[in-house]
């Protein structure tokens, strides 16, 4: 009974993870976690006009360029992933 509960809880969790990108879990790797953090931050910079302006002023770039570079950076904010142990 208990195992069955755990089973359903897990599928629900998996479903939630698929639905809410960026949600962490107990076995998340350091790389995944920090990549999520960076993507969240970059999306937040793009989504908050004051943060975009702040960066643009500091860096001497236009808002459009900052937004573009931040969105580009979301592709791989923390470099390539580490080699998997299983491989």
């Amino acid at each position: 009974m208990a195992s069955e509960l755990r089973y359903t809880a897990n599928t629900q969790l998996e479903h939630l993870h698929a639905r809410y990108t960026g949600t962490g879990h107990a076995d998340i790797s350091k790389y995944d976690w920090v990549t999520h953090q960076h993507r969240d931050t970059l999306a937040s910079i793009v989504g908050h006009p004051t943060l975009t302006s702040y960066l643009a002023i500091a860096d001497g770039e236009s808002l459009g360029r900052i937004r573009f570079e931040m969105t580009e950076k979301m592709l791989q904010p923390c470099g390539p992933p580490p080699r998997r142990d299983e491989d």
């Binding site: 990549t35 979301m74 592709l75 791989q76 470099g79 390539p80 992933p81 580490p82 080699r83 998997r84």
Partner: peptide, 16 residues
């Protein structure tokens, strides 16, 4: 759009 699924998996950086 840009899909990052593959580049997230490839440690060589080639997919990126």
């Amino acid at each position: 759009e840009v899909d990052y699924a593959e580049s997230d998996q490839d440690h060589t950086g080639q997919a990126f």
